[in-house]
Design a protein around this nucleic acid. Structure first.
Lengths: 129, 129
DNA sequence: TTAGTTGCAAACGCTTTGCCGAAAA
DNA sequence: TTTTCGGCAAAGCGTTTGCAACTAA
């Protein structure tokens, strides 16, 4: 792969993702980056998110096939998707490595890992009802 | 909701999904349906998949944000995604209900269920190398 | 008869990309 | 200076939708 440069745009996007505890979409990130670099373009956001994802600096989240979300936390962890408000949260609790073992034994594939996302009603939406 | 009719197109799509053990995309299904109903349109495939999904007759699978896949097996089960060939397989082994309890205790959200998909190299691709 | 459905084609919405000037290294 | 990157706008692509004709019930 080519050598990557740490441009102002790329640095800003990465910092914002590391700081935010939610999981913004490219458009949401675009709005925030624009406050700091007004002339930035959406294409730049998308290009940099793909670069950062390839470098392993951020995690790409695909929960519902609508749009991708990005997570500055690159450790393995699970997500929670609220069916009411569509917010995505990190979940507390450890990654269940034994699942890979359990399902490896019962299937002919070489399992390298898994993704899991939980769904339901988030704390925020429970309060509102 | 409105009353649904079992048209020839809808019946054909449902039967094919129940019979196939893979998890076709709308386009893949379109190709197969067209062998039986040559003048069918892609729009009809999409509309019926959404209807059947809403009726609970088929399961919609979102593994990588590229395109949706459909599964005629409506029981809870996990999937395996091959990183090499992109095929999607059903996994043998039971749904881990206790995960919902474990993560419910550690988080403030009301968890109703979860999805999990495993990834790695499938049996088919292992053989080829 | 009548409300849901289809085929067709255009529209949608998120994401990618070609081009060229700008700027890291 | 060299090579990657950014801004802009157009294109790409899976999916949805408006419309008039059609059909299941």
């Amino acid at each position: 792969m080519n050598q990557k440069r740490m441009t102002r745009q790329r640095k800003t996007i990465l910092n914002m993702l590391k700081r935010r505890k939610d999981h913004p979409t490219a458009s949401e990130l675009y709005l925030e980056v624009r406050e700091e670099i007004p002339q930035v373009s959406l294409g730049t956001i998308y290009r940099n998110l793909n670069v950062l994802r390839d470098l392993g600096e951020v995690q790409e989240i695909n929960i519902n096939n609508k749009f991708k979300r990005y997570d500055g936390n690159t450790q393995q962890h699970y997500h929670f998707y609220c069916l009411e408000c569509s917010r995505v949260y990190d979940l507390e609790g450890s990654y269940q490595e034994e699942l890979d073992r359990i399902f490896s034994e019962k299937n002919p594939h070489q399992i390298m890992g898994h993704n899991a996302d939980f769904f339901g009603t988030c704390a925020h939406c429970i309060e509102e009802t």
